[in-house]
Design a binder for these strands. Structure first.
Lengths: 135, 135
DNA sequence: GATAAAGGTTCCAGCAACAGGAAGGTCAAG
DNA sequence: CTTGACCTTCCTGTTGCTGGAACCTTTATC
């Protein structure tokens, strides 16, 4: 199967598939003309990678998960551990972003957003405590 | 003022300050020995940048915000617009991460995490519908 | 048979926003 | 005079691709 079809089936851009080969995540065969030749197993792996990536796992996590997936004697604890670590990182990111959001939302709310130069957003960034809307 | 003191005052690593100079965010003077020489204004700018960056604004946003900050005739609408766009991006990121978190949390929850190979996480990634904990 | 479109190939550059480290100059203290 | 703490520049690496150039192959059409 050519890379185009695999791209369509796995949902990954051809560029990404080539990249995954380059970093050793997948190893397609080659036809005599030099084209990559993928089997259904390769497609399955790539689909797996696509799903794992869209859950935010890093490439290195994906590499490990793929190995565990192929290891029929793995312990599910290993997989769970990776997922839990990743989950914790996501929670942290969410918390950080929510802090940013709260601060920003407040600033946006207090800024008149008109033609005048007075701006609580810039005030806060420059270290001044911006005036509140209501005292 | 040397870069070390500025780093301490602004909270930015010296490396970052040099980088900011390289990309034209700041332009310190030089002493005869070649050392960078920062004024209080420079420190103030860097502190501004530090705050803006920690609210997640991109470097290019920061560049614009800094220019608006220096432009005493700016319209606060311009600042508000940037902040609102950024806020929207943050909201999107939070939503994406929360989707990931929900899926992952569910998977982690259904995985026994013991010595056995059976693993709902891998099942889901490989495209099988994993069994639920309770039917 | 000529040609053009639609695949495929490799390789190189670039993104964001720095961080790490090498090799070396400078300065103040003991 | 040496030691150590600074400072300098320059180069590489990070993460996960994406875009583009320059070039083959295959297939369809005239």
């Amino acid at each position: 199967m050519n890379i185009g079809s695999v791209s369509a089936k796995s949902g990954l851009p051809a560029k990404t598939i080539r990249y995954y080969e380059e970093i050793g995540l997948i190893a397609p065969d080659r036809t005599p003309n030099g084209y990559r030749d993928f089997s259904d197993t390769h497609v399955h792996k790539l689909t797996f990678l696509h799903r794992a990536r869209s859950l935010g796992f890093t490439i290195e996590d994906c590499r490990t998960l793929l190995a565990l997936w192929e290891d029929k004697a793995r312990a599910s604890a290993e997989v769970k551990h990776i997922a839990q670590d990743h989950l914790a990182e996501i929670e942290t990111k969410i918390a950080d972003l929510m802090d940013m959001r709260d601060t920003l939302a407040h600033l946006v709310d207090t800024c008149a957003g008109d033609h005048r130069p007075d701006c609580p957003i810039l005030k806060q960034l420059s270290g001044e405590t911006p005036d509140e809307k209501e005292a």
